[in-house]
Simulated scan of single mutants.
Amino acid sequence: MGTHLGRPFHYPVAGERAKGPICPYPGGKAFRIQEGLSVSRQPAEKQKRPWPWLFNHMVDSRPGQDVDWRPGRRPGSSDRGRPMQGELAGKVAVVHGGSGAIGGAVARAFAREGARVFLAARGRERLDATVAAIGAAGGDAEAEADCLDALDSDAVAAHADRVAERAGRIDLVFNAVGFVHVQGVPFAELSLADFELPVHRYIRSQYAIAQAAARHMGDGGAIVSLVTPVSRMTGPGYLGHCVACAGVEALSRHLAGELGARGIRSVCLRSHVIPQTLEHGSHAREVFQPQADAAGVSLDEMMRAAAESTPLKRLPTLDDIAAAAVYAASPRAAAMTGAILNLTGGALVD
């Protein structure tokens, strides 16, 4: 026995089952690290939770019940009736930009981890291909019949409403909708319209998607956004995109503070250019090919030089982004919110 804040408690020993309050924390929850032990709580009418933020990610159970103690697991809730496999088992995930290389990779990763994935994008053919690939791998994915423009806030909200109606809620949202616009002119010659274009498109789409999803989220929800490292760099031609990325990072931090009281997390991934996204006809190739041409090198040579400039001598891959997105959305990151995860090979170190 011991005391903590004037309250008696006893230290659990290996093999002991939970009996009443055995934890010194307010709220009466016990959290045992040893495998195979139990988790207990006081009767609800006796609980006082002066530190609710500390326990939002912990499991609930009846006294003496053996449970999966991993953070965020709530036995008998959203996982009921679904196979308990994967880090996102039983979760409802929405991926915007699902027809692109990044969105498709993240959607497939979410599905592999057990999530029910809803995709939205403007490109119908590639969207269907992603859904088919997930289905062929045994995953659970759906796509709306109508393609979705992320700049249409009403359409984004209606899409979130339809997903919530069909699945009951939204647990996770990943936004791969991006817009890189390199003006290619110095600040003194940059028109207001060209400056506003990336700011308007990038921040507006991120705002609309996060807001629509958050309306249908509860405790354990996660909003994961994606930006480039341009927000931390300077150089002619990137001003609008720099401000847009900085705005998305600020939005993510604000959501972490405001939505945290509801148990909703917000995490931003900051990724360097991904060579796999530079296939012919892609938006990324349209951005970087002129830069390579101006330097008198091939796009492959430009990417190799970019990789060599990083401490790790490499650029991120689609698998890197997908793994980071799964982690940020999973119960393993239950204590993480407001964070910006750098996937830049060390080019940026916060």
Rank of each mutant, 00 (worst) to 15 (best):
G98H: 06
R204S: 12
G240T: 04
S309I: 06
H280C: 08
R162T: 12
S38L: 14
A212G: 05
L197I: 08
I22A: 12
R285Q: 12
V326Y: 03
I170A: 00
R285M: 10
P275V: 03
F288R: 01
A212V: 03
A167K: 03
D128I: 00
G28M: 02
R82N: 01
G97K: 04
P229H: 10
R112A: 07
G138F: 09
V131G: 01
M302L: 15
P75W: 10
V156K: 02
M217D: 07
D320K: 06
G338T: 11
A323L: 09
G103H: 04
A132K: 14
V67D: 07
G15L: 14
A325P: 05
R304H: 15
A30T: 15
V67M: 06
A120E: 06
V163K: 08
A305Q: 15
K46D: 13
M303E: 02
E35R: 15
D194R: 07
G100Q: 01
Y207H: 14
S309Y: 12
G2Q: 13
L343M: 06
H283Y: 11
V297A: 01
A188P: 00
R62E: 12
Q42P: 04
D146Y: 05
P12K: 09
P75K: 04
A294R: 12
A210K: 01
R124M: 10
Q211G: 03
A246I: 08
G15T: 13
S330H: 06
L148Q: 00
Q42W: 11
G138H: 04
S99A: 15
A294C: 04
A129S: 13
G240V: 01
R314G: 07
H10L: 09
I264V: 15
A30N: 12
A160R: 05
H4A: 13
S298F: 08
R80P: 00
D128C: 07
C147H: 07
F110T: 03
R82S: 06
A121M: 01
A105C: 11
A93S: 02
G20M: 03
C23I: 04
A333I: 07
V248T: 09
H200T: 15
G114A: 03
D194V: 07
A322R: 01
W51V: 13
Q211V: 08
A132W: 06
P75C: 02
Y25T: 14
A89M: 11
R74N: 09
E279M: 10
R80Y: 10
Y238R: 13
A164S: 02
P198I: 09
R32S: 10
A188M: 11
R201E: 12
R201L: 14
T337V: 10
A256R: 00
T277K: 11
A261H: 11
E301I: 09
L269P: 01
A208W: 00
G237Y: 07
G100V: 03
T277D: 08
I33R: 13
L54I: 07
V173P: 02
D320V: 06
R80I: 06
P71S: 03
L318V: 02
S309D: 15
G6A: 10
P52Y: 08
L269A: 02
L119I: 13
Q47D: 11
A261S: 13
T3I: 13
A208P: 08
A111M: 10
L5A: 15
F179Y: 15
V94D: 00
A329F: 03
I223K: 00
G64M: 09
T337W: 05
A111R: 00
